[in-house]
Nucleic acid binder design. Structure first.
Lengths: 202, 202
DNA sequence: AGCTGCATGTAACCTGTTACATGATTAT
DNA sequence: ATAATCATGTAACAGGTTACATGCAGCT
């Protein structure tokens, strides 16, 4: 079975839900579109790792609620102790940052600032999630065998990631403006001294 | 053109090299296997974004050295100002952490410790890269229009990411052992007080 | 004798995205 | 009116991994 399958089982182990709900919740452990989720659910059902119940809804399309089976929970639990493949980050921004020397100061600053804006938005979303989470009464039982333990530390990670990356972006903006100063000062003090100054900052 | 194409152009813009070298250097901006790189190079060559020179080597197989063309550099530079797609992290470990409540304390600790070991190794690699980088004379010209500017900040990011995630992992290990204490203390002081203690730590 | 690194490529397969398809409700 | 949310699914395509294929040099 693939990671998407285990991610689906992971969410269903916490609470039964529909394919639609799954596609939304998957986002922060293993992103997947609904077009990938529905066929995956069929496969998992065929392997008896989950069961499906039909619900007719008034004014809304029918809903299928999926629940994990004992077999599914066992398979998921076993997998937790297996070796993991290495994480992969696919980030267009990294490529652009790598080639930032090809562009001018202003465009470089825009590039980084856009990223900060994006990260701030994401951070806001995550923080809102934490608030909802901390207000729920279930949180009081937060220990390793609580269903919320894993979700909690994953959200905390997302928040930390965003905050740290914003810090890195600000550091880049600083470096860029320092470069600006250097070029301004070049005529005054000469390149070597200023280079040493910049290296000191780094 | 896709991100792999731009990633290849980004590396070739810094220095001409072979497909083999590219596959190795791509790792930290846009991971790709050599089986993906070679066909991509053909495509880019067909679009006149890069050129290829053959070199016969003694005792080694022939080498093809690719260089970016003016057209390629222009296309890359334009792309830097375009909108970026959102970053994607695919990390099996996150799924496992999410489901950590299904396993026992010892296995949970092993899972996190294995991750710390992996991250420490990666960190070591990146730090070695920085040392090599900082020893090279080119670094003295480090400013935004220097070829090394982007590479430098990308390596710094990788280091920061690793360090921060190790911190997060240690925090998890702490939470797990706190849970342990809680269960130990339960008989002594009662659940409510200890729960408050744990929440305070979080 | 076998593994790692250098060096290039293709083919089969799996994974993931975009687009197609349908349809009701609620909010702007 | 028009967009967004709920709700499910399929089909075509693009992107990425694993395996197949070859071969020499240098190390253990």
């Amino acid at each position: 079975m693939n990671n998407l399958g285990y991610a689906i089982l992971s969410i269903l182990a916490r609470h039964s839900c529909s394919g639609y709900d799954l596609a939304n919740h998957l986002e922060f452990i293993w992103p997947a579109k609904h077009s990938q989720v529905y066929p995956a659910l069929k496969k998992l059902e065929a392997e008896n790792l989950l069961t499906c119940e039909h619900f007719e809804q008034l004014g809304k399309p029918d809903k299928k609620i999926y629940s994990i089976t004992l077999k599914g929970q066992e398979k998921l639990t076993e997998w937790l102790s297996a070796n993991s493949s290495t994480p992969v980050i696919r980030d267009e921004f990294l490529i652009k940052i790598y080639s930032i020397w090809l562009t001018d100061q202003k465009k470089a600053e825009n590039l980084v600032q856009d990223r900060i804006d994006y990260l701030s938005q994401e951070l806001q979303k995550h923080l809102e999630q934490t608030v909802i989470f901390e207000m729920s009464s279930e949180q009081k039982e937060l220990n390793i065998s609580s269903k919320n333990f894993g979700k909690y530390i994953v959200i905390k990670r997302a928040i930390k990631l965003n905050e740290d990356e914003i810090g890195w972006c600000r550091w880049i903006l600083n470096l860029i403006s320092q470069t600006n100063n250097k070029q301004f000062l070049l005529g005054v003090a000469g390149a070597k001294i200023i280079n040493q100054f910049i290296l000191g900052i780094i």
